[in-house]
Computed example of a mutant assay.
Amino acid sequence: MSDLRLTHIGGPTALIETGGWRLLTDPTFDPPGQRYRFGWGTASHKSAGPALAASDLPPIDAVLLSHDQHGDNLDRTGRDVLRTAPTVLTTPAGARRLGRGAHGLAPWTVTRLHAPGRPTLTVTATPARHGPPLSRPLTGHVTGFALTWEGQQHGALWISGDTVLYGGAREVARRLAVGTALLHVGGVRFPITGPVRYTMTAAQAVHLCRLLRPRTAIPVHYEGWHHFHEGRDAIERELARAPADVRDRFRWLPTGTATDITA
C-alpha cells in the first residue's frame, strides 16, 4: 500500500509527502491583514495566516504552482519559498514570468521527477479555467496536476487548481483514475463582477466527485480570504444533500497537522 501524507497549511497550500518526496502546492505564507489586488478592479483581504510558517517547512523538492498571477495562490513570502525549491512546475505563461528555471506545462503535458532511492513521480498537467467562458484574458492561465507513482492502489493524486466545473475538469474524470482529489473550492466572487464565480462552488465540487469517484476528496482553498464566499459550512450543507456514496468520500484535514491518506 502506497504511503501518502498531506498537511493542509491553509488556503490552497498543502505539503505532499510520499516515498521520500516533499512537494508543496501554491505557497501562501504571508500573515493576515494585507490587501491584494487581482486586476480589473478586483481585490481582497487575507483574513487568516498559514498554520505553518515558511521557516517551519522541511526541505521542498518541488513546488506545484497552479498559477503565479494571484496573491491568494502565490504571495510575497511564497515567492521566497519558490527560490529555495529545486523544481517549480506551473503554466507556460507563469514559467516565463517567473524565470529562474520554472518549468511550464501545457494541459496534458507529462514530466517526471527522479531521485536516487525514491520512486519516480509522474506529473501530468490537467486543464483548469479560472472563471466563466471567455474569462482567460482577465484571469490568466491556470493548471491542475495529477501525480502518479509506483505502488498507488487507488489512482492518481489530483490537485484541481483554481477552476470552475467545465469541460476540461470533466475531461479529467474521463481520462484519469483519481484516488485522492485536492479540490480548490470557495466559490470565489467579487462585488464588481456580481454573481460570477471563479472557483468551484460546493455544488460543483459535489457534482465533480460524482464523476471522478475518488476514494478521498479533500477540500482546500475555502477559508482565509474575503473573496472566498463558500466556506466549510456551505460545503457541508451541500454534502448533507448528496448521496451517501459521494458524501462519504469527503474528508476535512485539520490545518497544520500531517494526515496519512491511503493512496
Results as ranks from 00 to 15, higher is better:
residue 212 L to G: 01
residue 119 P to L: 02
residue 204 Q to D: 15
residue 65 L to T: 11
residue 115 A to V: 09
residue 226 H to G: 10
residue 140 G to P: 01
residue 184 H to D: 15
residue 236 E to N: 04
residue 21 W to H: 09
residue 124 T to K: 00
residue 154 H to P: 04
residue 46 K to R: 15
residue 218 I to Q: 01
residue 39 G to M: 11
residue 80 D to Q: 15
residue 49 G to N: 10
residue 100 R to P: 03
residue 152 Q to R: 05
residue 123 V to Q: 05
residue 169 A to D: 01
residue 153 Q to R: 15
residue 198 Y to A: 09
residue 33 G to T: 08
residue 218 I to F: 01
residue 67 H to P: 03
residue 31 P to K: 08
residue 216 T to G: 00
residue 153 Q to V: 15
residue 161 G to Q: 08
residue 258 A to V: 12
residue 66 S to M: 11
residue 148 T to P: 02
residue 129 R to C: 04
residue 43 A to E: 14
residue 249 R to M: 06
residue 40 W to Q: 14
residue 71 G to L: 12
residue 55 S to G: 14
residue 29 F to Y: 13
residue 145 F to R: 03
residue 86 P to K: 06
residue 107 P to R: 02
residue 50 P to A: 12
residue 127 P to K: 00
residue 30 D to L: 06
residue 144 G to F: 03
residue 22 R to S: 14
residue 62 A to K: 04
residue 81 V to A: 07
residue 160 S to E: 12
residue 77 T to V: 15
residue 140 G to V: 03
residue 80 D to T: 14
residue 238 E to V: 04
residue 96 R to Y: 00
residue 168 G to I: 10
residue 99 G to S: 09
residue 201 T to R: 01
residue 112 R to P: 01
residue 58 P to Y: 05
residue 178 V to P: 02
residue 79 R to K: 13
residue 142 V to I: 11
residue 118 R to A: 08
residue 259 T to E: 07
residue 89 L to M: 07
residue 65 L to Q: 09
residue 143 T to S: 12
residue 85 A to K: 00
residue 55 S to R: 14
residue 219 P to Q: 07
residue 230 E to F: 00
residue 75 D to W: 04
residue 219 P to V: 08
residue 153 Q to M: 08
residue 131 G to C: 07
residue 151 G to F: 07
residue 14 A to R: 02
residue 91 T to L: 08
residue 256 G to V: 12
residue 128 A to K: 00
residue 107 P to M: 01
residue 26 D to F: 02
residue 209 C to G: 02
residue 31 P to Y: 10
residue 226 H to M: 08
residue 178 V to G: 12
residue 160 S to F: 03
residue 211 L to P: 06
residue 67 H to V: 06
residue 77 T to C: 07
residue 149 W to K: 01
residue 43 A to Q: 15
residue 8 H to N: 06
residue 74 L to T: 06
residue 201 T to L: 01
residue 19 G to A: 08
residue 133 P to H: 13
residue 22 R to Q: 14
residue 11 G to I: 13
residue 168 G to K: 02
residue 116 P to S: 13
residue 153 Q to A: 15
residue 163 T to R: 01
residue 60 I to A: 06
residue 228 F to Q: 07
residue 159 I to S: 03
